[in-house]
Amino acid sequence: MESKIWRDDADEYKLEPLNVAMGKKAQDKLGITLPELYITILKEQNGGSIKFDSYPSDTPNSWADDHVNVNHIRGIGKENSILDSQIRSDFFSK
């Protein structure tokens, strides 16, 4: 199944292809279980800019009154990945 979410142009967020060991290492390092859908998307392409970059929202924010801007998905890797972020482990473990 090929996803149509990824942009085709050069992309600083696109990382080397994801393998099982990388996913396990990220989960161990972050102390969380990553969502299956996230892993499925990263198996198609390990991070990158996405075509559909807005998500509807009822809460106004700094971008707009009716949506949130999401222009890329971070993959799993040594640099420029979710391992660089400070995420709360309780968010993903539920």
Rank of each mutant, 00 (worst) to 15 (best):
G23Q: 04
H67T: 12
M1A: 08
F92K: 11
V70W: 05
I76C: 04
Q27H: 08
S62Y: 15
F52S: 11
L42E: 07
I50Y: 00
F91N: 01
K94W: 10
I73H: 11
D8H: 10
A26D: 00
P35T: 02
G77F: 14
S93V: 05
M1D: 11
V70M: 12
M1Q: 10
W6K: 01
D9E: 12
F52V: 05
S93A: 13
Y13Q: 06
K43D: 01
G23T: 06
D53R: 15
S54T: 15
L15V: 06
N46P: 05
Y13V: 02
W6D: 01
S62A: 10
E2G: 02
S93P: 07
L37E: 13
A21H: 03
N69T: 14
D11G: 02
I82E: 01
N19Y: 09
W63K: 14
I41T: 08
D66W: 08
D84Y: 00
N69C: 12
E2H: 08
S89E: 08
G47S: 05
H72Q: 09
L83R: 03
L18R: 11
I76Q: 09
D28E: 09
I41V: 11
I50W: 00
K51S: 01
L42S: 12
F92G: 04
S49A: 10
D28P: 05
S3R: 03
G31H: 00
K14C: 03
G48E: 00
N80C: 12
G23H: 06
D90S: 14
L34Q: 03
I87V: 14
G77Y: 12
Y13L: 05
E12Q: 08
K14Y: 06
F91I: 05
D66A: 13
E12F: 07
S57C: 07
I76Y: 07
D53Y: 09
L34F: 02
H72F: 10
S62I: 15
D84C: 00
W6V: 01
E36I: 12
N71V: 05
G75P: 06
K14F: 05
E2T: 14
W63Q: 14
P17N: 08
R74L: 15
G23P: 02
E79Q: 04
K29E: 10
M1S: 10
D9Q: 06
S93I: 06
G75D: 02
S57I: 02
V68D: 13
S85N: 08
I82W: 00
K51A: 02
L34N: 00
I87N: 00
N46F: 01
E16I: 04
T40C: 04
